[in-house]
């Protein structure tokens, strides 16, 4: 790496490509979140349940994101692990109005954290407590407590309440994620 490039990356202006994994239970709003990040031209109007996964690309603060938007259906959840290996960040979307399945969310999260490809690495995890506009929605603090996020010591994590339909809260979360990934990359360099 040349001196100039080193300088550029140090200053944080160079363009980088990163892979992030978007996971969460079905109907939590993963595809909608990703759709919101995309440039206005690429946005789709109607969102249907994802079968398997779909690849989306978007730009945030000079970082080129390739998002693997995984399907949240029960029958596909065990396929997430195929994509753990080479991701630099995880976006975990939770339906905060779905109290009933919060235990399922916790189970899936624990599985994810215990996976050998994940637990070795210091990957930032961004939680979206989605659907905050719903009346019965839990607050992000309550969700963090329910999921036991405070027990995650070895990885940076952040939770933000969001509404993927309007885009509220998404910006804040993804800025944090960008920052974390940038730090991680500069450490590696």
């Amino acid at each position: 790496m040349g001196l100039f490039q080193k300088l550029v990356s140090f200053l944080g202006v160079g363009k980088k490509d990163v892979n992030v994994l978007v996971v969460g239970l079905n109907n939590s709003g993963k595809s909608t979140v990703v759709n919101n990040f995309k440039a206005d031209d690429d946005k789709v109007t109607d969102i249907v349940p994802t079968v398997g996964f779909s690849v989306e690309r978007f730009q945030k603060q000079n970082l080129g994101f390739t998002a693997f938007d995984m399907s949240g259906h029960g029958r596909y959840r065990d396929l997430w692990e195929y994509y753990y290996k080479d991701c630099q960040g995880i976006i975990f979307v939770i339906d905060s109005s779905d109290r009933l399945r919060l235990v399922v969310v916790k189970e899936e999260l624990d599985l994810l954290l215990q996976h050998p490809d994940i637990c070795q690495k210091k990957i930032p995890i961004l939680f979206f407590a989605n659907k905050m506009d719903c009346r019965e929605a839990l607050s992000s603090v309550k969700i963090a407590a329910a999921l036991g996020l405070d027990k995650i010591m070895d990885k940076p994590w952040h939770i933000s309440a969001s509404n993927a339909l309007t885009g509220e809260g998404l910006q804040e979360g993804v800025e944090w994620l960008t920052q974390q990934i940038r730090e991680l990359l500069s450490v590696k360099v």
Binding site: T50, V51, G52, F53, S54, V55, S71, Y76, L79, Y82
Partner: peptide, 10 residues
């Protein structure tokens, strides 16, 4: 699990 690519293909 080849079904994983369904959404990408659609």
């Amino acid at each position: 699990d080849v079904i994983i690519v369904t959404s990408s293909l659609t």
